[in-house]
């Protein structure tokens, strides 16, 4: 049982939990957090695939991919949050 196996499986479990959250959550904010969990899980699988038994150095390509993925995900999160805020303002305006 290597680090790659342990963290890879953990990543898959996190992805699965996120999936559950996206499908099940009724709340906008919670769904977004669940999507972020999915992203974290997928990233973990990618990085686990780059792990090599020491002393070999890990494969740098998945690391670069995951950094890209993190930046992409924070952008998407910010957009979704802006939509949530705007929607909340409009909805409370019309309710009032």
């Amino acid at each position: 049982m290597t680090e790659a196996t342990i963290y890879g499986l953990a990543g898959l479990a996190v992805f699965g939990l996120g999936l559950m959250g996206v499908l099940g959550a009724a709340d906008r904010l919670r769904r977004l957090v669940a999507l972020n969990l999915c992203a974290g899980g997928a990233a973990m699988v990618l990085v686990a695939s780059s792990w090599r038994p020491p002393p070999a150095a890990p494969d740098p390509v998945p690391h670069a991919l995951v950094i890209t993925g993190i930046v992409v995900m924070v952008s998407a999160t910010a957009v979704a949050l802006a939509l949530i805020r705007r929607l909340y303002s409009l909805e409370t305006d019309t309710d009032a």
Partner: peptide, 30 residues
């Protein structure tokens, strides 16, 4: 409001789809 609601649902579906593709890419690389 209608466009924003639909847009948010679209965003979530689209993001989930992209993340599934990403995990698929991870498996391909594996």
């Amino acid at each position: 409001v209608a466009a924003l609601r639909a847009g948010l649902a679209y965003m979530y579906a689209s993001l989930l789809g992209a993340l599934m593709v990403l995990l698929g890419v991870g498996f391909v690389y594996l």
